[in-house]
């Protein structure tokens, strides 16, 4: 694909990190909209990254992957069963097994499943009323969190924290918490919970 000289220079400048401010914004937008321009930027990225990649690997710190997972998904919570997975608990209380079990049984009696999710914005509590088919999220932080349902080909927006959300949801669905609202094409997850109905 032929590009004008101006576009070729712009592609090289974007790949090299030479653009700033409005020029960079314009080039990034062009990259999303123009496949030929995107290809030209990629040509530079692939060529230059190939040049710096042919070096011996170095041992990454052993705890790094766990840190990445925490940054992306929040910390996992030990459950009444002692397994490291999200489980229904009530009111954000994480404590002694007996307390958890009691809370869990109460929660079940009220047809609700409650999930505590640690996010970078603080702790969030997601409550699923299995009989009414509603979801509600309460966040301890100042940032408004939004709920998204993960689907096979992306994400469906469900609603914002505080609202009682009626949605087609079922056990096994993955609910994403994000600071991104409905205008976002792809939310950046800050926490997630897999709905279980046990």
């Amino acid at each position: 694909m032929l590009l004008s000289e101006e576009r070729q220079i712009l592609a090289a400048e974007l790949a090299m990190g030479l653009l700033e401010g409005p020029d960079e914004t314009r080039a990034e937008r062009l990259r999303r909209e123009d496949r030929a321009f995107d290809d030209a930027v990629w040509w530079w990225e692939e060529t230059l990254s190939g040049a710096i990649s042919q070096i011996p690997a170095a041992s990454a710190p052993p705890q790094a992957l766990a840190g990445i997972q925490t940054a992306l998904f929040g910390k996992e919570v030990k459950t009444a069963q002692g397994k490291l997975k999200w489980k229904p608990i009530v009111g954000g209380i994480v404590g002694v097994k007996a307390v958890l079990l009691s809370a869990y049984l109460l929660s079940r009696a009220l047809n609700t499943e409650t999930y505590v999710v640690e996010t970078r914005y603080g702790e969030a509590t997601v409550t699923w009323n299995t009989r009414a088919g509603t979801l509600q999220v309460k966040s301890s932080g100042d940032t408004t969190l939004h709920l998204w349902k993960q689907t096979a080909d992306g994400f469906n927006y469900l609603g914002a924290a505080g609202a009682r959300i009626t949605a087609a949801i079922a056990a096994g669905d993955v609910i994403i918490l994000s600071a991104d609202g409905p205008l976002a094409k792809v939310p950046e997850p800050v926490g997630r919970a897999t709905l279980t109905d046990e």
Binding site: M1, L2, L3, E5, Q8, I9, A12, A40, W43, T47
Partner: peptide, 16 residues
């Protein structure tokens, strides 16, 4: 220099 580099490395030609 960047244009020369791309040309030398066999990148696509450019239009006017």
């Amino acid at each position: 220099s960047l244009l020369k580099l791309r040309s030398c490395l066999g990148g696509d030609d450019v239009t006017e």
